[in-house]
Design a protein around this nucleic acid. Structure first.
Lengths: 189, 189
DNA sequence: TGACGGCAGCTAACGTCGTTAGCCATACTG
DNA sequence: CAGTATGGCTAACGACGTTAGCTGCCGTCA
């Protein structure tokens, strides 16, 4: 990976037309009604099909969820790469954090699915995770600080999504405090 | 809450002797064998009892899990308060982060249960969450920066626990980078 | 044209899960 | 000694993921 140009995402997995429909339906259910709503029976219902028929297209429920995870990683990666590319170096940390929060809060269920709990990395498209994470490196220029910054952003987002902050109205100030700390650290890196 | 002395934790909920045994068994199963292993039937088996009998002691499975969450919050809160109290101001951020990571990584399943996913705050002992979070404020002296620091720590820990870092050997450097950034921010606060 | 094979649906069913209803023995308590 | 609360039990329900096995349709090729 060079630091010039936008790293290209790995080629997305190919799905049949019907499988693509299933993924779209699964995403709609998952995003609107939450994790517990996505059952094989409900998913079939959404498509005018019985649950066992889904197994003609996907090995199991986990495979459907993996497709959703990959969609989410690809989207968030694209959004982050774009903002890093079109921002001045000194503004990158703040801009990246702002963009990340915006995307993640807009897709809370999908984001939680993609980033929480153990993951079967072998089932994921190789390179996708790394590509989705590289904007953080581009923003601060140091791999360790990048990992710390991404962890901060993830912590902020996931705790917000899960409603763990007692007073959410304080969140903008906390984002600002974190952005300032990491921007300063990136400067002195 | 004043900033002098150690804030006392709220009084823990009272449980009958049998309920306490059940919680202990649930914790053992949950910590050793993970979230999926804790079923009502398995929990009963562990106690030489049938699953439906558990409902004589707890309203539902969620109530058992809430007890585990409260245990975890109380423990991690105690550990953090202790380290903040016995550390010099300039070293508090680093020491607190070190301690937090140590506890959480030692109890990964419990930590994930206590901090991930939506929470039924009404079912929690009032004040427990706030008390468990106050060491972060004591470490940096600013509520917003404290929230940011805690979010950073949570992000680092939960991603480590869930195996989301491609190369875990880089983690100490990332913790160090984050500690430095937040220590500097707390100084200039 | 007609046989064939595979794709994509179906029903029936299995085992596991949380949970409820209802029964019964033991042990306090009046 | 009667009565009641406590804490077990079995049987069962509905929802879940998943499998087995059947069927109808459609394109291909002799």
């Amino acid at each position: 990976m060079t630091t010039t140009g936008i790293p290209q995402p790995p080629a997305p997995r190919e799905y049949s037309a019907r499988a693509t429909e299933i993924i779209a339906a699964a995403r709609a259910v998952y995003e609107h009604d939450g994790p517990d709503a996505l059952t094989m029976r409900r998913l079939g219902e959404e498509l005018g099909i019985r649950a066992p028929s889904l197994y003609k297209h996907f090995a199991d429920k986990q495979a459907v969820e993996t497709a959703l995870i990959e969609q989410s990683l690809a989207e968030v990666g694209a959004v982050c790469h774009r903002v890093v590319q079109k921002t001045q170096p000194g503004e990158r940390v703040a801009a990246l954090l702002r963009t990340y929060r915006e995307y993640c809060v807009a897709h809370p269920n999908l984001y939680r699915l993609a980033t929480s709990g153990p993951i079967d990395r072998a089932a994921l498209t190789p390179g996708l995770e790394e590509w989705a994470g590289s904007p953080w490196f581009l923003a601060v220029g140091d791999p360790y600080l990048a990992q710390a910054l991404w962890s901060f952003a993830h912590g902020m987002v996931i705790l917000e999504i899960d409603g763990r902050y007692e007073d959410p109205s304080t969140l903008p100030s906390s984002w600002a405090a974190g952005a300032e700390a990491f921007t300063a650290a990136a400067r002195n890196q």
